[in-house]
Design a protein around this nucleic acid. Structure first.
Lengths: 112, 112
DNA sequence: TTATTATATAAGCAAATTATTATATAAGAA
DNA sequence: TTCTTATATAATAATTTGCTTATATAATAA
């Protein structure tokens, strides 16, 4: 069982204590995504999405790779928080239906 | 593995994404406490503490029992969130040293 | 009864959060 | 080069949060 000190944990829980970011992380746990996919999924402005993923990136729980015009985000399995996050996500129902909706609309970009 | 829907989980994580409340819950996991003990532990005003425990009570993760003048708070093991919270708390280092400090000052009230 | 102790509630305020629109930057296509 | 697409950053506004002080309520002791 990985242990994370209490202040860091509080910070992490606050970060994940937002419906949008929590759903993002749950989705990234099984599929990489780019910003424009999240924009569709969450019906949110592109800067809004960018700000959320930046917060996730700032604490190192997601990482990015540029692929042409797109920046692909994925869960950072090297993060010190990864085991903790895994445990947490296991309690959440799959959000893959959101990806399926995207595919049905022909709006899926990343192929992972 | 207990599953909690994503919106409720986000709400719960936001609630626990505060250092004071997270520490309270970690302590309550092993020992019941009253408000005045928390006031000492967190060097915070009594209304400040009361407001934190009320938030925890409002979503049902802690319960209260009056014992004379004191109101004793404990983790509510019947909460739908209890299994989730247990998993989460297992990643946290014990905060019992805070209780020991209280005892050394002769300020421990509840005996559980 | 009055005084004391423990807790809760109300009001106020500064700081943080989450969204928006406007604009800048980066990559690829024409 | 210019145009389009994808993303990031800046500035701003509305809301929420987390504390404080002042006050109310509840239980016990004198």
């Amino acid at each position: 069982m990985s242990t994370v000190e209490i202040e860091k944990t509080a910070m992490l829980l606050k970060l994940l204590g937002d419906k949008t970011r929590l759903t993002m992380v749950k989705i990234l746990d099984s599929h990489d995504c780019c910003v424009c996919e999240f924009v569709e999924m969450f019906k949110m402005s592109q800067p809004g999405v960018s700000q959320h993923v930046r917060k996730l990136k700032d604490v190192g729980i997601v990482s990015e790779t540029r692929r042409g015009q797109w920046v692909i985000y994925s869960l950072n399995k090297q993060s010190e928080y990864y085991p903790f996050i895994q445990d947490l996500l296991n309690h959440l129902p799959s959000q893959d239906f959101k990806l399926l909706e995207l595919e049905e609309q022909g709006l899926r970009i990343s192929c992972d």
